[in-house]
């Protein structure tokens, strides 16, 4: 009996010690880690839009962040969007609450500065104030609308889906017709040499240029990539040829990674899910905005 108590006590102390070390380390590094993740996200955003390396982003290109919230209360759920109405001097936010059938419940201005909107805490508080204490809110996701001189050129959508081991965190870029512009893997834990190949250009480029119709019925085929197509995917041929290949393969299935069919399927289905849901949501939102004549910045 005495030994059991000693063992329990020692094991508890060991666990507590380990937890303390890990906790301290987490506290000390969390700020720097968040900053790095944010910096990476910014970089990925611009790279997806085609502003790589030294290419400067033109001034006419503007980025508008839309935050989606799930509002629940009174046994009902609705979707709330926090929409920017302007930037800089004209900053302001509009909160639009839409029920599950696509009908607008209410729209209200939100008191929130643009700088505060980037911080999850102050943003959540502002949304909570707007909907009132009777409802509970939950942040769902963020959509980024990119405009060039007032016309929309692309949407950037973040998303997570189940991979082979844990979640795969991605960012997708689609154009206003929901044709894939590209996607980037932000975080994953797939096996190196197998599922981790989802990070490689030759895999990601297979999705480039796929129209919405193809994305909706995307499939995975277990076959090696033809060598001429592989060269095009790796960017080893001229720009025109890459485009020709993209056109040729745009409605075909994705070639599975060698030894990682499950990871490939997960990515293909994940991309399909994210894009189709997004297309539905943005259409509903646009319809509401048009019907109600609400002015937003994009």
């Amino acid at each position: 009996m005495k030994e059991i108590i000693t063992i329990v006590f020692r094991l508890t102390v060991t666990c507590l010690l380990a937890a303390t070390v890990m906790g301290l380390c987490f506290i000390l590094t969390s700020n720097a880690k968040k900053y790095n993740e944010h910096a990476k996200e910014q970089k990925v955003m611009y790279e997806l839009l085609g502003y790589k390396g030294d290419v400067k982003v033109p001034d006419s290109v503007a980025i508008h962040e839309v935050y989606r919230y799930v509002i629940s209360g009174n046994d009902k759920q609705s979707i709330g969007y926090l929409l920017p109405q302007g930037h800089g001097e004209h900053e302001g936010f509009l909160f639009v609450n839409i029920d599950l059938n696509g009908k607008m419940i209410e729209s209200k201005p939100v008191e929130l500065s643009e700088a505060d909107s980037f911080e999850a805490e102050s943003r959540d508080a502002a949304v909570q104030n707007t909907v009132g204490a009777a409802f509970s809110i939950r942040f769902a996701d963020r959509i980024i609308v990119v405009t060039d001189d007032g016309t929309r050129i692309a949407y950037l959508i973040g998303g997570k889906f189940q991979g082979f081991k844990t979640f795969v965190n991605v960012m997708l870029a689609v154009d206003p017709d929901f044709t894939m512009v590209g996607f980037e893997v932000l975080e994953h834990e797939e096996d190196p040499g197998l599922g981790a190949e989802i990070e490689q250009d030759y895999f990601k480029n297979q999705f480039k240029g796929k129209p919405f119709e193809a994305i909706k019925s995307i499939d995975v085929v277990k076959a090696p990539i033809p060598s001429d197509y592989l060269a095009a995917l790796n960017g080893k041929v001229s720009e025109e040829e890459v485009l020709a290949f993209r056109e040729k393969y745009k409605s075909r299935a994705i070639y599975a990674l060698t030894g990682a069919t499950i990871s490939t399927r997960a990515v293909a289905n994940g991309v399909k899910g994210i894009v189709t849901k997004f297309a539905y949501r943005i259409n509903v939102l646009d319809k509401v905005l048009q019907e109600q004549q609400l002015a937003v910045s994009f």
Binding site: A18, C25, T29, A32, N36, K40
Partner: peptide, 16 residues
């Protein structure tokens, strides 16, 4: 496990 977590966190924070 502790060392793996610590190395993972430190790398993520200071050597992206």
């Amino acid at each position: 496990a502790t060392w793996v977590t610590v190395i993972d966190l430190v790398l993520a924070a200071y050597m992206p």
